[in-house]
Structure formats: structure tokens, C-alpha cells
Design a binder for these strands. Structure first.
Length: 158
DNA sequence: GCCAACGTTGGC
DNA sequence: GCCAACGTTGGC
């Protein structure tokens, strides 16, 4: 199976790329996803070694801030079972888990975040899911061409 | 803080 | 299975 590319959103006020950088082994479980489409991508399609763009939403400015890799494939999101978690979902049981997550490890933090505005100016990114009107999927596929384009932008000297 | 665009829920 | 009401996302 060919390597796939993804984009995962997070609000830096709740969990930022800096938080990821400070984790043991710079690895974390991507918990709290409560959208079926996003869940399906994590549960069914993400494989170890796939690359991920990390995106800060509700940030100033909203931007792609770095990359990560999948280091553990889907397993039940146990926060759904925890009554004290804000991600608690009484409809998810141990025997029939409703929500899943993967583990990701930080790959690189971009020296300069690539702002949403800048992404919109790049022709090669016109079809990116992130840039489509009304798109708010928190876990979404990215084309290799798009991933490579963004890496190139990140590497460009200012 | 506003609000457009989506997604989910639940009555019927 | 429709759809109105409600809740959430996320840029601005």
C-alpha cells in the first residue's frame, strides 16, 4: 500500500505542536475526534509511516505548523469511556467502541508556519480539502503533490 | 464575538 | 425518512 498523506487540525489553545514537541518521544494519541468522516480516515486508512501536516485552527494566523508521522494504527479512543473526560460519549462501549484514534510522532516543526492566506495563494493547492469553502473536517486526506508543495514552502528562505 | 456552513438529533 | 432545531467549527 502506497504511503498516504493527511492533515490534522488542532486548536493550539487546547493542544499545540509545542505540546507535541514536549511529549515523551514527541508522540501522542490523537484523541477527541468525534466526527464520523474523520474517524473513518483514522480507523480505516491511516497506516504506520503515513505523513501528516499539523494545522493550527483558531490561531493567529491559522497555519500549517509542521509535520508528523503515524506511529500506531487505529485503536479505540478510550476518552469516550471516561465519564470525566470532555470527550465522554455514553454511546461508545468497550465491546462496541464508536470512536478511534491513532498515535502520531512529531517529524518537524516548521521554522515559519505557513499561514492559511499563503496557502490560498498557491495554485497547486487550489484543490486542497482544507481550502474548500465550508470545509471543516479535522482529519483529511492530502495529495502527495500538495504535501510536497507545502514542504517546499516551509523550506524556502524568507 | 459574529455568523456561515455543516453535522447531529429527535419528533413526527 | 424528512426536516426543523440545535450544536459545533473555525475564519474573520
Amino acid at each position: 500500500m502506497a504511503k498516504k498523506y493527511w492533515l490534522m487540525k488542532t486548536e493550539p489553545s487546547s493542544y499545540s505542536i509545542t505540546d507535541l514537541a514536549n511529549e515523551k518521544k514527541q508522540t501522542t494519541c490523537w484523541d477527541g475526534v468525534r466526527n464520523y468522516q474523520a474517524r473513518n480516515f483514522m480507523r480505516d486508512e491511516m497506516k504506520i509511516g503515513d505523513s501528516v501536516l499539523l494545522y493550527h485552527s483558531n490561531a493567529k494566523p491559522p497555519a500549517v505548523v509542521g509535520t508528523a508521522v503515524i506511529v500506531r494504527e487505529s485503536y479505540p479512543d478510550f476518552t469516550a469511556w471516561d465519564k470525566n473526560s470532555k470527550y465522554f460519549d455514553p454511546k461508545s462501549s468497550q465491546t462496541e467502541p464508536r470512536w478511534f484514534m491513532v498515535d502520531i510522532q512529531l517529524d518537524q516543526t516548521f521554522a515559519e508556519p505557513i499561514a492559511l492566506d499563503a496557502l490560498r495563494e498557491v495554485k497547486a493547492l487550489d484543490d486542497m480539502v482544507l481550502l474548500q469553502k465550508g470545509s471543516r473536517l479535522s482529519v483529511q486526506p492530502v495529495r502527495k503533490k500538495e504535501f510536497d508543495t507545502i514542504l517546499k514552502l516551509a523550506g524556502r528562505k524568507k
